[in-house]
Amino acid sequence: NDVNKLQFENARLRKAYIALQSWKSAIFSDPFNFTADWTGPDVCSYAGVFCAPSPSDPTMRVVAGIDLNHADIAGYLPPELGLLTDLALFHINSNRFCGSVPLTFLRMKLLHELDLSNNRFVGKFPGVVLGLPSLKYLDLRFNEFEGPVPSKLFDKDLDAIFLNDNRFRFGIPENLGNSPVSVLVFANNNLGGCIPGSIGKMGKTLNEIILMNDNLTGCLPASEIGHLKKLTVFDVSFNNLQGSLPSTIGRMKSLEQLDVAHNRFTGVIPSTVCKLPSLKNFTYSFNYFIGGDCAAGAYTSDGGNNCIAGKVGQRSSRECSSEAARPIDCKKTKCESSSNKSGS
């Protein structure tokens, strides 16, 4: 299978052949025989490989996409993949690729979507993605990336960021609000720290945010979150957030899903929240709310395990008079900055 003996439609497809054969050699297990037909010079007929006319020269076919979602392939990404300079999308959800993302991915100047989700990638946040000029969709969820999330990620012109179910730590960078994403999912990491006040700057673009189970502390940035007028999903459940629920949530007019359950919120649920016009689900169970329970609106709600008098399924009076149930003054609480948290 000498590349020099094969005939190719054009030089780009010849390079693609070299890249794909290197990748095939870096595959240890392919239970569905996905790459069985990865032989010969017609790379455009390979399973999971998608060709299209080049945007710069429509007379030339090039490899524009790799889509191996759900192939269950075990292996790694060899540096030769950087020869696929025409790639617009790289989708490998639910495989068993391990190791890291090669630096040669920097040559993929047209890469628009990078989906590495549900694999076995490890190590620091793959900094190479920060150098991809066309990237809009970044999905790294369900891997074992660790350490800090670089603040530069939020200075990039991305549309979607999925980082959930990794091992990221050391807080959410303070420049979060610079990001123009429509969706951000950060759930199930061990970030710690507070929700940066800069989140208020995302009002023009942000539609959905999930910060569930991230070991977050402090109070919700009250005046800032009121600016999130386009937000439909706001989920901060399973953290250690404190203080009362700010009445400014009532200004998030597009909100459909609101989940603040499993935190340490206190006080009364503001009536402005109950009146949100598009609300479909409101979950506030497992906190220390003492009242303001909205009379059932058009939405479903779960407010069990609080301290609301006269409502069924509440915490015991011992729990409700404990230290954890005591209101705190959010003006007096200082959020640890993410830089000095790394040692704790």
Partner: peptide, 12 residues
């Protein structure tokens, strides 16, 4: 919601 869908590993 694409955000809630992202909580399931196999979803695309």
């Amino acid at each position: 919601y694409i955000s809630y869908d992202a909580l399931r590993a196999n979803n695309v």
